[in-house]
Amino acid sequence: MLMKIFVLLLIFSWSSSYADILVGTGLSKVTQGRTVPALYLGIDKGSEVIQFSSLGVETEIYYHNSYRFSFYKQSAFGSVFGIKQRAGLGIGVLYARRAYREDKDTKEEVETDFNIGPAFRFSMGITDYMFVSLESMYGINNLLFLVLSFQNTSSINFGVRF
């Protein structure tokens, strides 16, 4: 379902004939402390970036899947250490599903997470064809955002653009 929404959003937001495709991998806070590689896909139109990432881990007694979709308005910020920088602000949506069971014969307990909120993206171009990005989403679930408390999800990603 989320994938279909993502594809529809891509089609309707396509106003330019030129854009970079981003393909990569990354580490997400969703699996904090464990290095589970995530799939990272995106479309970079220069001033706008649409991004989708997913990751999953599964064992005999539990599984954990997570999907994130973000849209950013971004601009160039010159360079530091000779590296071209871009930063974007936008909105992100996260959906995660977790299930756990005591052993193979017991029924699994399933929990889901849904988050929506402002998102931030920083990216730097190592070369014209490679990027590293830091992305963060500040999920708003209740009024605690008034005291700057958010349900954060961040990731560090690297990949290629073409």
């Binding site: 580490l27 931030f120 920083f122 500040y138 954060n152």
Partner: peptide, 18 residues
């Protein structure tokens, strides 16, 4: 400011500052 720090051990901190 909105910021994020993400380390290679996959621990991160993202915050909003005033």
């Amino acid at each position: 400011e909105v910021n994020t720090g993400h380390a290679l051990d996959n621990y991160s901190a993202s915050e909003v500052h005033l």
